[in-house]
């Protein structure tokens, strides 16, 4: 069954771009404004799911050749890794640190290791979300 869904596909292509940008914004804004790893991950994940629902799996897979189980695993590794990492600096488990750095062009910026931890959270959320939806929809 072939449905004429040109409009859907065109709209989704634009929407996904906006949603992805919004998701990235939410992820980075998280420390000082509403947002963060969970929300960012959820929004990014749902954008990817939207792509999968509109186009078929093969098409999307060509553009994004990731195994999302591995993305989730990478996220878990990153989250626990930053936690363990603090032990090497003689600090208690999960200690986060932050500071101000001067970066060329961007000027003085506030950087924090929490971002790494949050990235782990976000990757896990994305990976799990897409894995769940894909495995349910793939099964015949």
């Amino acid at each position: 069954m072939k449905v004429n869904d040109v409009i859907l596909k065109t709209v989704v292509r634009m929407v996904v771009f906006i949603v992805l940008t919004f998701g990235m914004y939410l992820f980075f804004a998280g420390h000082n404004a509403p947002g963060g790893g969970f929300i960012g991950g959820l929004v990014l994940g749902s954008a990817i799911v939207l792509l999968y629902l509109t186009y078929d799996i093969e098409t999307v897979h060509k553009g994004m050749p990731f195994d999302f189980k591995k993305v989730a695993a990478l996220g878990v590794l990153l989250a626990t890794g930053t936690a363990i990492g603090s032990l090497f600096f003689d600090a208690p488990f999960l200690t986060q640190t932050d500071g101000y750095f001067t970066i060329p062009i961007l000027g003085e910026k506030h950087l924090s290791t929490v971002v790494l931890f949050e990235a782990g959270v976000a990757l896990t959320v994305i990976g799990t979300l897409v894995t769940i939806i894909l495995s349910i929809s793939e099964d015949e």
Binding site: G36, K69, A79, V114
Partner: peptide, 21 residues
Amino acid sequence: LGDFRAFDTMLEVVVLFIAGL
């Protein structure tokens, strides 16, 4: 989530992953 109670969050991420698997 990311600092004071990061331990909970870390384990939650693990739980989420396990549920996905």
